[in-house]
Write a protein that binds this DNA or RNA. Structure first.
Length: 816
RNA sequence: GCCGAAGUGGCGGAAUUGGCAGACGCGCGCGACUCAAAAUCGCGUGUGGCAACACCACGUGCCGGUUCGAGUCCGGCCUUCGGCACCA
């Protein structure tokens, strides 16, 4: 019979569904293993080849763990709220709820088609009230804990999406969704206080088993720095002082001016009457400037002198106070002491505005004659009174001690990380469950009244006024205060899409329970997640928020752990024709066509065979024929053996190879090295095919089981044909490895003369150097390479190599 | 500019702790089958020296080092990709 992937895959998709393959009894399972892959945003285009790549890798791992005897829980869901979905709905002019329902249906079909072993009975959809009720519940818990607060803030506003964005959603000054340049607006917004957890989020990274690149990205994003917060009094303003943060207290004697950010509250109030108009004009212009422009490092450093002076408490000298927009209002205190000799930015500013550049740290190589740039490395302190001669690090401590003793400042840690802004002036998200009462102020909606339903409205277009479209829906807005019963307004903003996904993995195990967010017993049994797989692009967004939410819920007593994922592995990105796949580029690969032509087994195996899973790569269908041929060979091998009759005797060498293959393929799956698992299986099939008339049952069954994580349907079919009535994907076990087969009695080793391979000999694995040497000396090739010389030195590495050194090495020659 | 990852045949990529570079596959060439083609099967395929074999030399981005021995370790560069970017 000929291999027919369409018929086989259709047959087994149905059988698996009937048998509930992938479903787990969450309460009874003895060996829980939570295998998680990042859930998709169900776009209208459907699953693309990159999703199939990502999910196949995770699924093959899950299937391998199931064969190892674990009860693998591999849930799937849909991250369907958010601006992305809404923008598409706006473009199509169809209500997002309807579009999303269609997309989800399509995604489910494709996820079935790709043979994912998913626990569908626990699927979640973040747009379902049964889910977002609990998203709102999470928000309320954070609020009660003091981790959610509303405050005025300068925020990133996208003029195209007509909403605010979190810092993490602004890429190089532009909106990550639509690439429109972001502008600054002042609005009252809800924040989640992730900065309270900055230290913990950072410290845990050291011990976490996560892809190193992700850990580095998170460290950089949190951006912890230690230093001194110091104050300089403002001359002539007895009540005013400028506080600033510095990581280089050792350079304080070199602070020759102070710079305030345009947002700084003192900027206008301390300016002299003469300077005030110029300062006011500068501040206004700077604040109106787009962030993109302001963030441009190559731009000339502009600024204006306030005419006011500050007292450098270290030198006792009065120094000018400037306002300049290269100082950020949102970091530290929004002001700096400028040390132009030792900070490149200050150097450029001082040069441009003719300010003095006093050197106070001498580089190890001595002072440059005519410096053209700042020196920011460590060195020896100079021109700094009693600090002279100290190293930078000694002086640093000295100055901090002194500042604290004298009351000029204190040691402080600052972070680059900002609080998480979650308000969105949009329609397609969960309403933030708060009520604004003229009498009681901001009042949380009682948990018993959740969910605050997102109303069905005709016009879901953003208003662009700084308010959500919900503000135009009186039935939604007008409510009563839960506290005093008087008339009140609902909060009309919805929450950030990332809040939906920051806790979805907690919901899966309890997904079917309507009366509570989390089932504590299942949480205790199944979490933290054993393996989490997802893309690099979520290194600092989703993955950091998720960790924060876990820590907060842990601190409130809802979770027995505070890190959600024991192991995280980033899969690579699939590109095509050298570029990220996108509709506009027209380089999107549709998996459906490949499924139709080759079947899902071939597509899955080929995607994994293309290269290392954790690196991704350029998709090309160049080699898929090779994998398709491989599937045929597997089929023909088993089919042929069943037709002809199985062999009953397996040669020793074949048995050796079988055990070796089991061990190697198992190691590969466990390490997500799926590409080398495929190669090894191909080599095994080649070996079995070479002796196809005599292959035994154990050999074929080994092959079938080992291949099943990648190609579930063909292997299930062959398993059945081999006479099994139970399902391979539900009942089968990974074959045992007998370690005695992994070591050979004899091994072929290389014989080198002066480090170059001249011959190969077969020696006993536990043989001595003398035996090996004797055998090697008997080789003509070795003798000819030696050319009559005797080996001066012999290096024998058992099982690997024998090196006969006849020539003097260059070093020996040099020593003589 | 800073951080991270990676540079191996025509191509995708293999290679325990430093120990036979190029597994496996694609492509290509030759052959078998066929009226012919496709499919399939067999053989070959790093580069150079040779028409070919034997054999020899060279060969893992570049330069240098450590070592009996380096794709792998160390120092210095170059290139590509990804992330961050006036964070004091």
């Amino acid at each position: 019979m000929r291999y027919n992937p369409m018929a086989i895959e259709a047959k087994w998709r149905e059988r698996w569904e009937q048998a509930g393959v992938g479903e787990v009894d969450l309460d009874a399972a003895p060996r829980p293993f939570y295998n998680l892959v990042m859930f998709p945003y169900p776009s209208a285009e459907g699953l693309h080849i990159g999703n199939v790549f990502a999910y196949t890798g995770g699924d093959a791992y899950g299937r391998y763990m199931a064969l190892q005897g674990f009860d693998v829980f591999e849930p799937m869901g849909f991250d369907a709220f958010g601006i992305h979905s809404e923008n598409f709905a706006l473009k199509m002019n169809v209500h997002p709820a309807r579009l999303i329902a269609q997309n989800v249906t399509h995604f489910r079909e494709q996820l079935h088609r790709m043979e994912g072993r998913f626990a569908w009975s626990h699927a979640v959809d973040t747009t379902s009230p049964a889910y977002y009720r609990w998203t709102q519940w999470v928000f309320l818990q954070l609020y009660h804990r003091g981790l959610a607060e509303k405050r005025m803030a300068p925020v990133n506003w996208c003029p195209s999406c007509l909403t605010v964005l979190a810092n993490e959603q602004v890429i190089q000054g532009a909106c990550e969704r639509c690439h429109t340049l972001v502008v600054t607006r002042h609005l009252e917004q809800w924040f989640l206080k992730i900065t309270d957890y900055a230290d913990r989020l950072l410290d845990h990274l050291d011990d976490m088993d996560w892809s190193p690149a992700i850990k580095t990205a998170q460290r950089n994003w949190i951006g912890r720095s230690e230093g001194l917060e110091l104050s300089f009094p403002v001359v002539g303003h007895p009540d005013a002082a400028v506080a600033f943060f510095t990581t280089r207290p050792d350079t304080v004697h070199g602070a020759s001016f102070v710079v305030l950010a345009p947002e700084h509250p003192l900027a206008l109030s301390i300016a002299t009457a003469a300077a005030r108009p110029a300062v006011a004009a500068y501040v206004e212009a700077a604040l109106a400037r787009r962030d993109q422009e302001r963030a441009d490092v190559t731009r000339a450093k502009t600024g204006v002198d306030t005419g006011a002076r500050a007292l450098n408490v270290a030198t006792g000298r009065e120094i000018p106070i400037w306002v300049a927009d290269y100082v950020l209002g949102s970091y530290g205190t929004g002001a700096i002491m400028a040390v132009p000799a030792h900070d490149q930015r200050d150097f450029e500013f001082a040069t441009a505005h003719g300010l003095p550049i006093p050197w106070v740290v001498e580089p190890p190589g001595g002072m440059p004659a005519s410096p053209t740039a700042a020196y920011s490395g460590p060195g020896t302190v100079a021109h700094s009174g009693e600090l002279d001669g100290l190293s930078s690090s000694e002086a640093r401590e000295r100055v901090m001690d002194w500042a604290e003793r004298e009351g000029h400042g204190q040691r402080r840690v600052t972070y680059r990380l900002r609080d998480w802004l979650i308000s969105r002036q949009r329609y397609w998200g969960p309403p933030i469950p708060m009520v604004l009462c003229p009498t009681c102020g901001t009042v949380p909606v009682p948990e018993s009244e959740l969910p605050v339903m997102l109303p069905e409205v005709d016009n879901f277009r953003p208003l662009g006024t700084g308010e959500s479209p919900l503000a135009a829906v009186p039935e939604f807005v007008d409510t009563t205060c839960p506290r005093c019963g008087g008339p009140a307004r609902r909060e009309t903003d919805v929450s950030d899409n990332f809040l939906d996904s920051a806790w979805y993995y907690l919901r899966y195990p309890s997904a079917e329970q309507a009366d509570r967010a989390l089932d504590p017993e299942r949480i205790a049994k199944w979490l933290p997640v054993h393996m989490y797989i997802g893309g690099h692009e979520h290194a600092v967004l989703h993955l950091l928020y998720t960790r924060f939410i876990s820590m907060a819920l842990h601190d409130m007593g809802f979770l027995p752990f505070d890190e959600p994922f024991r192991v995280f592995r980033a899969h690579g990105t699939m590109i095509h024709e050298g570029a990220k796949m996108s509709k506009s580029r027209g380089n999107v690969i549709n998996p459906d066509e490949l499924f139709d032509r080759y079947g899902a087994d071939t597509v899955r195996t080929y995607l994994m065979f293309m290269g290392p899973y954790q690196e991704g790569g350029d998709f090309s269908d160049q080699g898929i024929q090779g994998v398709y041929r491989f599937m045929h060979r597997v089929w023909d091998l088993v089919d042929g053996a069943l037709t002809r009759g199985l062999g009953d005797k397996t040669p020793e060498a074949a048995e050796r190879e079988r055990h070796r293959t089991i061990a190697k393929v198992g190691r590969d799956y466990a390490a997500l090295h799926h590409n080398t698992a495929v190669s090894t299986l191909m080599a095994y099939v080649n070996a079995l095919t070479a002796r196809r008339s005599e292959v035994a049952r154990a050999e074929l069954e080994t092959l079938v089981i080992l291949l099943s994580p990648l190609a579930p349907a063909i292997t299930e079919e062959l398993w059945e044909r081999l006479g099994h009535t139970e399902l391979l994907s539900q009942q089968a076990c990974w074959p045992a490895v007998d370690p005695t087969y992994l070591v050979d009695d004899e091994v072929e080793i290389a014989v080198q003369v002066d480090g170059r391979v001249r011959d190969r000999i077969v020696v006993a694995i536990d043989g001595t150097q003398e035996e090996a040497l004797a055998q090697a000396m008997g080789s003509e090739r070795v003798q000819s390479a030696l050319g009559g010389r005797q080996p001066a030195r012999v290096v024998y590495v058992p099982g690997r190599a024998l090196n006969l050194v006849a020539a003097r090495s260059p070093r020996q020659a040099a020593n003589e």
